[in-house]
């Protein structure tokens, strides 16, 4: 299958830049950064053929990629919507009302945590502390944080997503 999967040339250039950060015989160190690139380029999650392709690129065995991909919470092991709303639910955010925000999103999108909306646009993920506790409640969407969330702010964000104008990276 891996013949159908290949990074764009400009991504490959990035991969080479990444591997150059480590000693030549330590190419495996590039694994996590390269998996980030792969997840972004191949549909927001890591399919087995994608992981096999990364293994080939870094000259390691596929199992070495699988065991890493499944360990880290940022790697998705199943398909996700175009917009993944990752809302923090840990203590400090809870003190500031993250429960209500999560509940509000669930009702608005008619999904539970871990699910994707019927139109394939949104996935809701509850996550653990993202290092933004002082600006709670908060969520991550793509590359950026959205902090001091209120219901109104959530409405705005969802609307921008629907219009396709929210910056993801």
């Amino acid at each position: 299958m891996s013949e159908t999967i290949a990074f764009k040339p400009e991504t490959l250039t990035q991969v080479h830049k990444i591997t150059a950060r480590y000693p030549a015989e330590r190419k495996k160190s590039a694994l996590i950064p390269v998996l980030h690139l792969a997840q972004k380029e191949f549909g927001g999650w890591l399919q087995v053929p994608v992981m096999d392709y990364v293994a080939e690129l870094l000259e390691i065995t596929p199992i070495e990629v699988y065991e890493v991909a499944t360990f880290y919470s940022m790697f998705n092991m199943k398909p996700v919507g175009k917009y993944v709303l990752e809302v923090c639910q840990t203590g400090p955010c809870m003190l500031k009302g993250s429960d209500e925000i999560i509940q509000y999103i669930k009702e608005k999108l008619n999904i539970n945590a871990g699910e994707t909306s019927a139109d394939g646009l949104f996935t809701l993920k509850t996550v653990e502390c993202l290092g933004a506790c002082g600006y709670a409640p908060m969520m991550q969407l793509g590359k950026f944080y959205h902090e001091h969330l209120t219901k109104e702010k959530v409405d705005e964000i969802l609307e921008l997503c629907r219009q396709g104008t929210l910056a993801l990276d």
Partner: peptide, 10 residues
């Protein structure tokens, strides 16, 4: 000096 990103693991 290089920056190396993790992927979510306390």
């Amino acid at each position: 000096i290089y920056v190396h990103r993790g992927a979510g693991a306390y």
